[in-house]
C-alpha cells in the first residue's frame, strides 16, 4: 500500500461528493458536489457555518453516514476507494487508516468504559497485540497527548475527567493505530478558551511529529488561522473557495469568505456597526438556481442565477467558484461588499 506510486498521489481525493437525505416530505441536499484533495502531512480546514455540509462531508469520508443517506461521487483515501469498502476491509479502514475526533467528548465516549478500555479495545482489534502490551501502549499514548499521571488516569471513567482531559483522551484513541488521515470535527469548540488553545497547540504538534494528513472542520476563522495549511470554505454543500490559509484570510476571493471575515467580531471599533451578511443561508431542501450565495451577495448579477459558477483559479493553489473573483480580490480586506 505504501508503494512509490501511491505516495506520489494525494493522500485523499474527493471528487464531486454529494450527499442527499431523502424523506417522504423532502430531499435535503446536504452536500452537492464537493471537490477537494489533501496531500500527506497537510492540514486542511473545512470552514463553514452550520448547515454548510462540512460535518456531513467528514462523516462521508469515514463512511459514518446512516444507510438512508445517498452518497455519490468519488472518495479515494490512500489508494483505496472509500465508498466501495465493505465488511472486514471497512472495519480496518475505520480506525486503522482513518480516525476521527468528535466535538463532544462526553457523548462520543462510552460512559461505562474507562479510558483504558476504550484505548485497549482499539489497539487489540487493529494491532492484534495482547492485553498487557495494549495497556502499555495505551499509557504511552496518554503520555503523548500530555495527560498528567497517565498510569492513574487510564483507569478513569470519562465523567471523572475534565473537558480538556476528555478531549485529549479522545485524541489518544484516534491516534492509537497510527492513522494516515485524521478527521477532526470541531474538536475544540466545546472547550473553554484557555483549554482550547492548549488542545489546538497539542494537535498541531502531534500532526507535525506524526506527519498524518488532517482535515479539521471548524466554523471559527481563528481556529483555521492557528492550525491550517490550506482552507476550503463551504457554503450550502459546496466548496466555494480553497487556498493556502494565509492567502485566503488575507485576500479572500469569494464574496462569502469576504463577508464571513467582515462579520466576525474581531477588534472592530465599538461605535460602528459590524458589516453583517444580510439574510440567512438557503434552505437545503430548495436550493436556489445558480450560485447558492447569490441571494445574499451584493455583487450578484443576472448570470449568477443561471448556473453554479465553474471553478476559477486566480492564483497558483487557489480556487474560487464565483463569477466576480477579480472584483472581490480588489476590495480592501475586512470590508464587506
Amino acid at each position: 500500500m505504501d508503494g512509490g506510486m501511491v505516495a506520489a498521489a494525494p493522500l485523499l481525493e474527493v471528487e464531486d461528493l454529494s450527499v442527499q437525505f431523502v424523506t417522504r416530505e423532502a430531499t435535503v441536499n446536504a452536500v452537492s458536489g464537493a471537490t477537494f484533495n489533501l496531500k500527506a502531512g497537510e492540514v486542511l480546514c473545512l470552514l463553514g457555518e452550520s448547515g454548510s455540509g462540512k460535518s456531513v462531508t467528514l462523516r462521508a469520508l469515514m463512511r459514518l453516514l446512516p444507510g438512508r443517506a445517498r452518497v455519490k461521487g468519488r472518495v479515494n483515501v490512500a489508494g483505496q476507494d472509500a465508498l466501495a469498502l465493505k465488511g472486514r476491509a471497512l472495519q480496518s479502514f475505520r480506525g486503522g487508516t482513518v480516525a476521527m475526533v468528535f466535538q463532544e467528548p462526553m457523548t462520543a465516549l462510552d460512559p461505562v468504559y474507562t479510558i483504558g478500555q476504550h484505548l485497549t479495545e482499539m489497539i487489540r482489534r487493529h494491532k492484534g497485540v495482547g492485553r498487557a502490551e495494549a495497556r502499555a501502549q495505551a499509557i504511552e499514548l496518554l503520555n503523548l497527548v500530555k495527560i498528567p499521571s497517565a498510569e492513574r488516569r487510564i483507569d478513569a471513567y470519562p465523567h471523572e475527567l475534565s473537558g480538556g482531559l476528555r478531549q485529549r483522551a479522545m485524541i489518544a484513541i484516534a491516534l492509537s493505530c497510527g492513522p494516515k488521515l485524521l478527521l477532526a470535527d470541531e474538536p475544540t469548540t466545546a472547550l473553554d478558551a484557555t483549554v482550547q488553545i492548549q488542545v489546538l497547540i497539542l494537535l498541531r504538534r502531534l500532526q507535525q511529529e506524526l506527519g498524518m494528513g488532517t482535515i479539521f472542520v471548524t466554523h471559527d476563522l481563528g481556529v483555521a488561522a492557528e492550525i491550517a495549511d490550506r482552507v476550503a470554505v463551504m457554503y450550502a454543500g459546496r466548496v466555494i473557495e480553497e487556498g493556502p490559509v494565509a492567502d485566503v484570510l488575507r485576500r479572500p476571493a469569494h464574496p462569502y469568505t469576504a463577508g464571513l471575515m467582515a462579520s466576525t467580531v474581531h477588534d472592530q471599533a465599538p461605535d460602528q456597526d459590524i458589516a453583517a451578511i444580510p439574510g440567512s443561508p438557503p434552505d437545503l431542501r430548495r436550493l436556489p438556481p445558480g450560485c447558492s450565495f447569490a441571494p445574499r451577495c451584493s455583487l450578484a448579477m443576472p448570470a449568477c442565477r443561471q448556473g453554479f459558477p465553474e471553478p476559477v483559479f486566480p492564483a497558483p493553489g487557489r480556487m474560487a467558484r464565483c463569477l466576480r473573483v477579480a472584483d472581490v480580490l480588489q476590495q480592501p480586506v475586512g470590508v464587506h461588499a
Binding site: Q196, Q198, I201, D220, A224, A225, E226, R250
Partner: peptide, 25 residues
C-alpha cells in the same frame, strides 16, 4: 491576561506558540 492571551488571531503568521496557562479550571 491568560484569557486574553488565549484569543485566537485571524492571522496565520501570528500563531500562538505556547499556551498562556496549562490545565483546566
Amino acid at each position: 491576561q491568560a484569557l486574553l492571551g488565549s484569543r485566537l488571531s485571524m492571522d496565520s503568521s501570528k500563531r500562538i506558540e505556547s499556551p498562556p496557562i496549562v490545565g483546566d479550571p
